[in-house]
Every structure is written in C-alpha cells, then in structure tokens.
C-alpha cells in the first residue's frame, strides 16, 4: 500500500504536527516502508489470543485519597512559555 500526500496531511492534523513541504516525500516513503514492516504481523495467527496491554499482570498500587502534594503553582507556571495572572496563555479561542 502507498501512503499518499492526503494521508500524511490527515495524520499530521491528527498528531498536530506541521510537516514541511520539503520533507513530505521522505515521510511518505518512510511510512510505506514501515507499513511493510508492520504488515508482517498479519502472518501470525492470533485467533483467541487476549491482547497484552501491559507487562505487569499484578494490581496497580493505590494510595489513600488524601492531599499529599504541596501546591506548586508558581514553580509549575515558571516552566511555561507564556503566563499571566497565574494562568497559561494561549491565542484567543472564542470571539
């Protein structure tokens, strides 16, 4: 199967990544090669096999539902590229 330009553009939209015009052919060639590699999985009979989502088949640790972490609002906001009045800033989304 061949991954065409439209598929790449759809994937880029799903993944929210801009793909430059100069690299689009390379990306499409790579996806073709990858789908060929991943297609090898179809040769294996997996009828009745339970999907394995995780290597651990034990119960996850749970902790009591009590507040344990201090409020690090200032420290966490300090890593953001743009903030104001204790909030993350993004371009206007509502007119």
């Amino acid at each position: 199967m061949t991954v065409n330009r439209q598929t790449i553009e759809e994937l880029a939209e799903l993944a929210k990544i801009s793909i430059s015009e100069t690299t689009i052919d390379g990306v499409s060639g790579h996806l073709d090669d990858m789908l060929q590699l991943l297609g090898q999985l179809q040769t294996i009979n997996t009828e009745g096999i339970q999907p394995m989502a995780h290597p651990l088949e034990t119960q996850q640790l749970l902790r009591s539902d009590i507040v344990a972490e201090p409020n690090n609002r200032e420290a966490l906001l300090a890593t953001a590229p743009l903030t104001a009045e204790g909030l993350f800033l993004v371009p206007k989304v509502i007119d």
Binding site: L41, I44, T46, I49, Q50, P51, M52, A53
Partner: peptide
C-alpha cells in the same frame, strides 16, 4: 494485533 503478538 500487535498486543496479541506481544502476548505470544
């Protein structure tokens, strides 16, 4: 499919 093969 990959999750099933992972179990195998």
């Amino acid at each position: 499919k990959a999750q099933q093969v992972r179990r195998l």
